[in-house]
């Protein structure tokens, strides 16, 4: 395989993984945009979804993509309850409180999962594996990654449709733009918040399932994914769905290019590149690259 073939194959892989990054970011970005809460337990919710997929796959023998039918409602309920019990109390308080509470939540979730399933890395096995080869140029499309991209795009489109075309989605956007005015026109803010949190957690859990056949999952993988979600959100703007997709693909491309063409960095490249991207974007364009529900500067 010569250089241009390698480059094109790397770009394909970057775009395929970018869809996963995009859908993984949405939950984080919408929660931040609507409630002003930075959810440091985001990566742990992802991990929870991945572990649910793994349990159903290994112990019940389900196809991983089918487990979405269970993961989405269960994670929605979990998010709804956590919002009512915990997050509602801290929305009005300074951001430090929300950071610390969600950090505490992250510790509890990670150590509970470690207690039950030990810290061994796990992976789910899907029937849709192998490669689709093309006659021209000899490029290959990994089947699992392509399915993940399709599922991610479907979920993103679903959320986009929900937020922009349905009545409830409009009330969520109204609550994000002006809480007082939304309350005045009769929107029940607490219910809207709880449903938003539930939907975002359900999406995050689903993204965890999409991740489970691609790479190993373990109880302490959360922090790295929270950081990636933060980097992409900072690039895309809060609650900006096409922006999240673009940002995710950008991160995927950067990661894959670095991993292919810079030797010796190996597996740690993802975290370093997302960190570098984060700092560069934050320092040069603090309002985000594409704009969103709100400029991040307005959030206090």
């Amino acid at each position: 395989m010569d250089f241009s073939d390698l480059l094109i194959q790397t770009l394909i892989n970057g775009i395929l993984i970018g869809g996963l990054y995009g859908v993984m970011t949405l939950g984080f970005s919408v929660i931040w945009g609507v409630m002003g809460v930075i959810n440091l337990a985001h990566g742990e919710f992802l991990m929870l979804g991945a572990y649910m997929a793994w349990v159903l796959n290994k112990q019940q023998g389900w196809e991983p993509f089918l487990t979405l039918l269970v993961i989405l409602p269960v994670m929605f309920l979990l998010g709804y309850v956590i919002q009512i019990v915990l997050i509602n109390r801290i929305i009005e308080k300074p951001h430090l409180i929300a950071l610390l509470v969600t950090y505490g939540l992250a510790i509890v979730m990670a150590s509970t999962v470690k207690l039950i399933y030990t810290a061994n890395p796990r992976i789910t096995t899907t029937q849709f594996s192998g490669y689709w080869e093309f006659d021209f140029g000899g490029f290959v499309l990994p089947v699992t990654k392509t399915l993940v991209l399709i599922a991610a795009l479907l979920m993103m489109f679903g959320l986009y449709f929900f937020l922009n075309r349905t009545r409830f989605g409009k009330s969520i956007r109204a609550a994000a733009q002006n809480k007082e005015a939304a309350r005045m026109v009769g929107i029940e803010i607490n219910k809207v918040y709880a449903a938003t949190f539930g939907i975002c957690i359900a999406l995050t859990g689903a993204a965890g399932m999409l991740l489970s056949p691609l790479g190993s999952i373990h109880p302490f993988m959360g922090a790295a994914w929270t950081l990636k979600a933060f980097a992409i959100t900072a690039m895309a703007g809060l609650g900006n769905i096409p922006g999240a997709l673009l940002g995710g693909m950008m991160l995927g491309l950067v990661e894959n290019l670095l991993a292919t063409f810079v030797p010796t960095v190996g597996s740690s490249v993802g975290i370093i590149s997302s960190f570098a991207l984060l700092v560069i974007v934050l320092v040069t364009r603090p309002q985000g690259l594409f704009g969103g529900l709100k400029a991040p500067q307005e959030i206090r």
Partner: peptide, 28 residues
């Protein structure tokens, strides 16, 4: 001199990123 120009949560997360990235670089 980079991160202290960021405000509020941005600083917190940038420093969390510094910790995680430094750990990976040192390990690599």
């Amino acid at each position: 001199s980079f991160t202290l120009r960021l405000k509020g949560p941005y600083f917190s997360i940038a420093m969390l990123g510094t910790l995680v990235a430094t750990r990976e670089i040192v390990r690599a």
